[in-house]
Design a protein around this nucleic acid. Structure first.
Lengths: 184, 184
DNA sequence: TATTGTTATACTCTATAACTATA
DNA sequence: TATAGTTATAGAGTATAACAATA
């Protein structure tokens, strides 16, 4: 037997990551800017709330990458890191639910974070089927750095919007609610 | 020689579509709903404009599929259909630019639309390298149907937002501008 | 039998790079 | 040589389904 099986007991394969070879992805292809082509007629698109939303989201996505350029972290991975940081011991299944992913997707996401040494899987005391997710010391440092960058980035946008900003967020939350209710 | 080579001359392969076998994709996996998990602490995410935007966009994306359920058309494909409809003779490269895609992406998108019989490639009179994209009769009918569905869907959201709606769209457009400028 | 997580696989979307035809 | 479009390929992200371990 191995000497130290400190955190992740060996009775499970502990996501030893058989698919990617340790340094898997890097986003690298965030999508091109969705610019407005001058002579073009956009028809109904110019009047759709959904299209305005898509434009804004595309722009913010690219801008997010600029803001966190050094770490090569996608918005999704940043969100996962925040969630694990604020909810220590969180299960993978809950992470999946919170992020609108399938369990297998949460696995890949967690693998990516553990490969970086930012997150580790530990035993769940009550149920041997479960892992508890925890930030490592390095992960906590990284989160602190990223949060500072992301928040500065967000604040710059809010400043640029001026007094429109609070109404915008409120309207977005309402919109998400309405569309979700619509959908169910 | 073939009798009729009416529209697309044979001196080019005319995107005869060697990759997919004619009935390629169907979106089918639109992403799960991004619901708020009750007991969870979202930390900074709850204060970020970018995250609110992501939530709203996710909800609208799913709702869009509901609204156009019968046609299995993604927002992107709908947008492409609108653009070709409003700008007959449009080149693929312009479509790519308008939609923030690489040329090869616009090719796949156009292939999908032509496979459905909604769009056709025709010669460009001035430059034999170019195609002009045009709606077919069937494509125009489909566009009319889709536009009606999408607009009704969008109007329902606008109605639900009430007097917040105009401010929301204005703020979204401003946000896209600001973030893009930020990025360049 | 149901749940948690894993593995294997497939499919979509997008990009990169090399290629052909035309300018 | 530059441009428009095509082809081939690769990568990221997601899903499905079958599986093992545990409840």
């Amino acid at each position: 037997m191995d000497a130290a099986d400190t955190t992740a007991p060996a009775r499970r394969t502990a996501a030893s990551n058989g698919h990617a070879d340790l340094a898997p992805d890097l986003p690298s292809a965030p999508e091109a800017p969705l610019v407005r082509v001058p002579g073009l007629d956009y028809g109904v698109l110019d009047h759709l709330l959904g299209y305005a939303l898509r434009r804004a989201q595309n722009a913010l996505y690219l801008d997010f990458h600029r803001a966190t350029a050094k770490a090569q972290v996608s918005p999704q991975r940043f969100a996962a890191l925040v969630l694990v940081g604020r909810n220590p011991g969180m299960r993978q299944g809950v992470l999946a639910e919170a992020m609108g992913l399938h369990r297998s997707g949460a696995l890949r996401l967690t693998d990516w974070l553990t490969d970086r040494g930012w997150v580790e899987r530990r035993d769940d005391e009550n149920d041997a089927r479960r892992w508890g997710l925890h930030l490592t010391a390095q992960g906590r440092r990284m989160l602190t750095t990223l949060e500072r960058q992301v928040q500065a980035h967000d604040q710059a946008l809010i400043d640029a919007l001026g007094d429109q900003a609070p109404a915008l967020r409120q309207a977005l939350e309402r919109l998400a609610e309405v569309a979700t209710r619509h959908c169910l």
